[in-house]
Write a protein that binds this DNA or RNA. Structure first.
Length: 497
RNA sequence: GGCGGCAUAGCCAAGCGGUAAGGCAGAGGACUGCAAAUCCUCCAUCCCCCAGUUCAAAUCUGGGUGCCGCCUCCA
């Protein structure tokens, strides 16, 4: 089986073949650290984290780099508003980023370059662009000469002429730098220092980098001249990624990235969620409202990564319930393994799922093969989830039979291997459950004996048709987190919730 | 104005020419004193509309309609 990915650059599906066999370099455009992350960020980083996990599972040696933009007007504005410094603001939201992502079970990147730590690389790049006539200095600023790069527009599929007319129905914003630019399309590589703002020395005077140049510099520093996958939100296609290409490729003469991948937006009631529209929900707000992190992760993965994902109360509630189903399957082994006679060795062996090409010799596809087939098709996570649900529902059913009937006819060995596959595949998607959740909560100090005694009382009451007393005892136990199951034959089973 | 994307049940969503996956919600049945839980079963004659190609189309072509995004900071 081969992995095919949608390449924005080619506007089509391509077979994935890394530049160097067995190794994959991924650069993912990170956040500008001036506020808490919202659901749009959550989607983006969940998607790319899952892409990364899948590639790792497939045996690739993956190097994943994601930047922090920590010098920017928005950060400066924020600092000014609250009377602190750019560093302080950036540090705070960088930390909050790490906290939020950890909640969502997103793996740490191999490197987290920051703009302010990449000044040398940035200056070197600008210098080279200037040497090659792709850049020019103007009153302390340095601009990229867009018309010097004939391929400009190849990523976003637009032509300069088409953009010229532009802005119908949109307010023509006065560009304060237009006087310095030789052409309206030129963009800033370096900005002259303004009073009171952080600035670095450079051949063009004190100043700071423009936005796009940092990524070009970081990619070169951390991953080399041509990387395998450059990822980010769809809104970055133009101008950000287009400009990165113009900068990097003008200098190196080589493709900046082999595959350009972009995730679709999160919308709210059909409208794009964004900071500028103010209709965003932060990750921490959502999670503190009681939504489980993995339910959010599942919600994201249930949508094809390139399509819009509409966030609604109903949708997140559905995902929460769906996660409960998956969780029941994932907890199966922890809850019933002992009862099924799984021995310690079986449990500790774990990880029964390797990146195999489907061990099942059957004519029908094995779950693992089916899972791979789905994801190999441009990371079709929604289809891959089908496999997980089928396994989880099956296990949940067996678990329920064990609780309600005290036994199951299924083969313990088979259940074990199903559970292993579910655990393994679920882990590939980063959907993980803590075994702690399987540890049943202590129930208000009631011992098993006390519970049995109450049940005996209730059974007597029921026999005497004293249903008032019978229901009272049931409610009392329920309040303690104990559910009664009246099975046929007058037998009452119970379990702690 | 330019460029691009999407339209499948109440909701999310797969499908890539061969007769509609999966999840959520819902319905019925079994069980029960009543519940809860559980188990079993059901749940799109049809894929925005209209033409066309084809033995065969949700899937291809043409034309509509609607929604969305990018062209300004933005995941």
């Amino acid at each position: 089986m081969t992995l095919s990915v949608y390449n924005t650059l080619k506007r089509s599906l391509e077979t994935f073949e890394p530049v160097a066999p067995g190794k994959v370099g991924i650069y993912c455009c990170g956040v500008t650290v001036y506020d808490y992350c919202h659901l749009g960020h959550a989607r983006s980083y969940i998607v790319w984290d899952t892409v990364r996990r899948y590639l790792m599972w497939q045996g690739y040696q993956v190097r994943y780099v994601q930047n922090f933009t920590d010098i920017d007007d928005k950060i400066l504005n924020r600092a000014r508003q609250e009377g602190s410094s750019m560093e302080e603001v950036a540090e705070r939201y960088t930390q909050s980023y790490f906290e939020d992502m950890a909640q969502l079970n997103i793996l740490a990147a191999d490197a987290y370059p920051r703009a302010t730590h990449t000044i040398d690389g940035i200056k070197r790049l600008i210098y080279e662009l200037e040497q090659k006539d792709y850049a020019y200095a103007a009153a302390g600023d340095v601009y990229y000469r867009v018309r010097q790069f004939p391929e400009y527009g190849k990523l976003s599929g637009r032509k300069l002429e088409d953009m010229r007319s532009g802005a119908s129905g949109r307010v023509e914003v006065e560009d304060p730098d237009s006087a310095k630019k030789q052409d309206a399309f030129d963009f800033a590589l370096w900005k002259a220092a303004k009073p009171g703002e952080p600035a670095w020395e450079s051949p063009w005077g004190m100043g700071r980098p423009g936005w796009h140049i940092e990524c070009s510099a970081m990619v070169r520093d951390c991953l080399g001249e041509t990387i395998d996958i450059h990822a980010g939100g769809a809104d970055l296609v133009f101008p950000h990624h287009e400009n990165e290409i113009a900068q990097s490729e003008a200098v190196t003469g080589k493709p900046l990235a082999k595959y350009w991948m972009h995730n679709g937006f999160v919308t709210v009631n059909g409208e794009k969620m964004s900071k500028s529209l103010g209709n965003f929900t932060t990750i921490r707000d959502l999670l503190s409202s009681g939504v489980e992190p993995m339910a959010l992760r599942l919600f994201v993965l249930q949508g094809q990564y390139r399509k819009p994902l509409d966030f609604t109360e109903e949708a997140i509630a559905g995902a929460t319930n769906a996660w409960q189903t998956l969780k029941d399957g994932l907890l199966f082994g922890y809850q019933y393994g002992q009862q099924l006679g799984w021995d310690v060795e079986m449990l500790s062996k774990g990880a029964g799922v390797q990146g195999s090409k489907g061990a099942g010799g059957d004519a029908s596809l094995s779950p693992v093969a089916k899972f791979q087939e789905a994801i190999d098709d441009d990371f079709n996570f929604p289809n891959a989830l089908v496999v997980l649900f089928e396994l989880a529902k099956d296990l949940r059913r067996e678990g329920n039979l064990l609780v309600h009937e005290g036994k199951t006819d299924a083969d313990a060995q088979v259940l074990w291997s199903q559970w292993q596959i579910l655990m393994g595949l679920s882990g590939v998607l980063g959907l993980q459950v803590s075994p702690d959740e399987a540890i049943l909560e202590e129930t208000g100090g009631l011992t098993d004996g006390e519970i049995e005694a109450l049940i005996a009382q209730r059974t007597a009451a029921r026999k005497a048709k004293d249903f008032g007393e019978s229901d009272r005892i049931r409610d009392e136990l329920k309040a303690q987190g104990i559910t009664l199951i009246d099975a046929p034959g007058g037998v009452t089973r119970w379990h702690r919730n």
